[in-house]
C-alpha cells in the first residue's frame, strides 16, 4: 500500500535541515506558521489559509522588506508544506482514534 512516510521525512529534511538562502530558524518558523513578522508574515499567512488570495502586492511587499526571491521561494514552500503537514498529521490522528489504534 502507499507509504509516503520515508519520502515525507526526506522532504522535510531537505527543506528544514539543509543549508539554504533563508536561515534555518526562519524556514522552521515559516513551516510552523509561527513567529514570522512583517510583510512576509502576511504572505505566509495567506498561503496557509487562503492561498488563492495571494496577490502581486503581497510578494512585492515581502521583497521590499529585504527578502530575496530565493528566500521567498524557500519560505513559501516551507509554509505550504507545513500547512499540508499539519492537516495530514491531524487527520492521521483522527483516523487512529476512529479505528481504535491510537
Amino acid at each position: 500500500m502507499t507509504d509516503i512516510a520515508a519520502a515525507r521525512r526526506a522532504l522535510l529534511a531537505c527543506m528544514l535541515d539543509a543549508d539554504g538562502a533563508a536561515p534555518k530558524a526562519q524556514r522552521r518558523a515559516a513551516f510552523e506558521n509561527a513567529g514570522v513578522t512583517g510583510p512576509v508574515r502576511t504572505l505566509l499567512e495567506k498561503i496557509t489559509r487562503d492561498a488563492h488570495r495571494v496577490s502581486d502586492d503581497d510578494v512585492h511587499a515581502a521583497r521590499a522588506c529585504g527578502q530575496t526571491e530565493d528566500q521567498l521561494f524557500e519560505l513559501a514552500t516551507c509554509a505550504a508544506v507545513g500547512q499540508a503537514n499539519r492537516q495530514y498529521e491531524s487527520a492521521m490522528a483522527a483516523l487512529a482514534q476512529a479505528s481504535g489504534k491510537e
Binding site: 508544506v81 499540508a84 492537516q87 495530514y88 492521521m92 483516523l95
Partner: peptide, 20 residues
C-alpha cells in the same frame, strides 16, 4: 483513508504553491 490522505498532503501543498 491513509492513501487518500497521502494524496491530500501532496496536492494541498501543490495547490497552495500554484496560487502563491
Amino acid at each position: 483513508v491513509e492513501d487518500a490522505l497521502a494524496v491530500a498532503f501532496a496536492f494541498d501543498t501543490t495547490t497552495r504553491l500554484a496560487e502563491a
